[in-house]
Design a protein around this nucleic acid. Sequence first.
DNA 1: TCGTGCCAATGAATCGATTCAAATTCGATT
DNA 2: AATCGAATTTGAATCGATTCATTGGCACGA
Lengths: 332, 332
Amino acid sequence: MVSIKDVADQAQVAVGTVSNVLNNPDRVAEKTRERVLSVISELGFVRNDAARQLRAGMSRTIGLIVLDVSNPFFSSLARAAEDRAAESDSTVLLGDSGHDGERESRYLDVFEQQRVKGVLISPVGNVDERLKQLRAHGVPVVLVDRVDPQRRVSSVSVDDVAGGYMAVKHMLTRGRRRIAFVGASTDIQQVADRLAGAQQAVAEYPDAELEVVEAAAMTVLAGRAAGELLAERGLEALPDGIFCANDLVAIGVMQAVLLIRGLRIPEDLALIGYDDIDFAQSAVVPLSTVRRPTELMGRTAIELLLEAIDRPTSESRQVIFQPELVSRGSTL
Amino acid sequence: MVSIKDVADQAQVAVGTVSNVLNNPDRVAEKTRERVLSVISELGFVRNDAARQLRAGMSRTIGLIVLDVSNPFFSSLARAAEDRAAESDSTVLLGDSGHDGERESRYLDVFEQQRVKGVLISPVGNVDERLKQLRAHGVPVVLVDRVDPQRRVSSVSVDDVAGGYMAVKHMLTRGRRRIAFVGASTDIQQVADRLAGAQQAVAEYPDAELEVVEAAAMTVLAGRAAGELLAERGLEALPDGIFCANDLVAIGVMQAVLLIRGLRIPEDLALIGYDDIDFAQSAVVPLSTVRRPTELMGRTAIELLLEAIDRPTSESRQVIFQPELVSRGSTL
DNA sequence: TCGTGCCAATGAATCGATTCAAATTCGATT
DNA sequence: AATCGAATTTGAATCGATTCATTGGCACGA
């Protein structure tokens, strides 16, 4: 394996000069620099990152742990984070915990051993313990899609209450008054927030009413089951606008309503989801939905982390983004 | 930051002993080992991976570059690869090229600098050049979902011809005889292979015929457009079995056939897709499909790589997996 | 000619874990 | 008590890039 010493010998300069060519090119005379560079490509020299970071005491990598890479929200966020990190000459190590605390823990161990500059994490469960350990070891952390109740670390998240509000308000302004909310248990913070926003919007219209339908899970199948229950009612007992806690549930409801009861969307029933997954726009009736600014969240998370790295004493910041309404055929 | 030296001082032993506690515990007397371990946890010592790998000359990490992490095929494969690697005390660095050659290249650079043990890659385009460079630097490579025509490196892939064959054979054994294949351009190797398999199956039945319908892309919308074209025909001109080159296209066709023409699946028309994405089983009519053994592929890729690392002179191996038919409601 | 600055280049010291030959301790045996 | 062999422990050398105090060379002005 070619080392900086081999390059130095071959180019007849000292190792310090080669290092300067790589890190402080303007301190080296042009002729020397060119000679060194040509030797580097001739020998196919590649910097040894381990040696570099051993000396530097810190790596140029940032750890990112997401709950599920196959979820477009996270993969898009991760991609944006990587791009932003690359601009600051850092690399993102992507870890997928798959909602599994053990895998999460394994990644945190690896990240610590690699002496990452900092960690972005969308934590599985209760992370107080791990956060404490990371902080004790001086590893800056930024939470993603979750806030730290104690405000010890910075975070980026989305205002789901506002998201729920804008979804339902959207239907209300289109004249719908009998609104239903379909979602899983409100034990899940995100579901509870979206419902709270829906309630806020309905409260602004004295003649509007909100009905809550609980689905077994946040899946297409659970949504379809909930949709079938609704569709069994007579037309007069049916809501005229349904807000689902995510797009999967909404697609399930759509299947039930369209096919089993033969109702029309949006004529008989308006429908809106949450997340803007790929399928939303290619559903039978293109699905209106609420989109979270994933790219912006990814970039911002990196920026908060870089800030925490550069100024470890600075106060933590909780950045909360506003979601965006995407209006499609299902709520025309 | 706590180093092995601090631990040694505090535990009143030499640094070599601490190292042995970590790497060769049975060479250390029990009493000493316990004392050292308690100091380690007391001081919160964490191994510095950079120093370790500098000395070792090689890291314990494996680089994995996929075309798109949000594609369940790749995320599932990546997860399996990570688990298999963990069993061999290695860590996977996951990179998402997003079909972008530049990002791919950036990851390969980082991986080289980090002196990864090896690289698994599902390459974007022509990788001959990069493969050559990696091989020149002695970095073992295994291709994923792609074979090297020159058989220089090992690979794991799927027999798409067999997949196409079993999909169409499945419909033929259920009495369907007028088969249609819907897919994008056969410039894409996978599409061409699946079609070839379909033709093989049809050739076995003298009274069966195969029609090829080209879709604009491998998406739901393109599938729907193709489905609408088919559905416009009279019932007697319609195929009675459709094989789509992937599930997205199949779902598009299903939407067109069910809703626009009001046909019944599978009574009027059997339908089968490819990939077994999550949506396949929660489609309106659960979609039959062909599944690739992603977990097995991920594990095997790591094993091939470990083999190439351990025995650099060993011959390359092209492992081709057989896909599996998943029969659901759409082909009953 | 000598001194003063400045620009380039030098190379030893350093980071932290691992390795291994050498030293030390321990126990059993004579 | 002396000896031998095995079990432990020691600590200097090593990996490769970076840093920085120091040296070398050169030009210009006095």
